[in-house]
Amino acid sequence: MLELRLVQGSLLKKVLESIKDLVNDANFDFSSSGFSLQSMDSSHVALVALLLKSEGFEHYRCDRNTSMGMNLGNMSKMLKCAGNDDIITIKGDDGSDTVTFMFESPTQDKIADFEMKLMDIDSEHLGIPEAEYHAIVKMPSAEFARICKDLASIGDTVVISVTKEGVKFSTRGDIGTANIVLRQNTTVDKPEDATVIEMNEPVSMTFALRYMNSFTKATPLSNTVTISMSPDLPVVVEYKIAEMGYVRFYLAPKMEE
C-alpha cells in the first residue's frame, strides 16, 4: 500500500517538467522516508537524481519499499491535467501494474483520478561518491538560465571557470565569442539574489550547452541554483525543493583527447 498526498501539487508538476525531456522513463523508488529517482539520459552524458522526502507530504504512507517504472512523458501528460492549485495524491497497491494520480481542487468540488500503466525498466543504479568540490557557485536560478540561453545562441559548449575574480561562462562559435563574468555579490536585498562563490582551488571545465539548457527547465522549482565543480568529476547543478529535497543534474565534462 502506497499513498502520498502532496498539498502543493504544482511541485510535482514542475519536477516532471524539469526532467521529462532528459529522461524517457525511470524507476521511482518509494520508501518510508520519501521517494527518489535516479536515471541517466539515453547517451549516458547526464544523470538526474531526484529526492522528495516524506516530511514534505501532508500524508505519506509506504508500507514496504517499492519501485515503480514510469514513462515520464506519459506521467507528465497526466500531471498536466492537474490544476496548479490542486492537491495531488499518488496511490499504488502491491503487485499492481498501475499507479493512480488523484487530483483534488482546493475547494474539493472537483476530484479526478488518472490511472497510469507502469512499465518494467531495467535501469542500472550508480553510486555517486561524496566529493569535496574545488568550487561551488550559488546564484539566482533565473540568471543561470539566462546565461545558458544567451550562450547557446553563440556556441555549443560553455567553459565555466572559477577563480578568485569570480565565475566566468565562455563560449565560441562561428559568429564570434562570448564571455560573461559574475562576481561574488552578497550585498543584495534578498538572499536568493546573491551570487556566492566558494573556491578551494581554481577550476575550469567544458560542458555541452544543450544539456545545461535542459537542466534550466528546473528553474521554477527554486530561486537559486548551486553549481559544484571538480576537474575529475561531473558538474552538479542542484535545484533545492523547499523543505522537501532536490533535483540534481550531473553532467559529464568535455575532456581533451
Binding site: 541517466m40 547517451s43 549516458h44 552524458v45 547526464a46 544523470l47 542500472e124 543504479h125 550508480l126 553510486g127 555517486i128 561518491p129 559548449t157 567544458t206 555541452a208 575529475d232 568529476l233 561531473p234 550531473y250 559529464a252 565534462p253 568535455k254 575532456m255 581533451e256 583527447e257
Partner: peptide
C-alpha cells in the same frame, strides 16, 4: 579537440 565523456566513466554501478 575535446570529447564528450560519459557519466559511467566517473560513477560505478552499485
Amino acid at each position: 579537440v575535446s570529447k564528450q565523456s560519459t557519466i559511467t566513466k566517473f560513477f560505478n554501478k552499485v
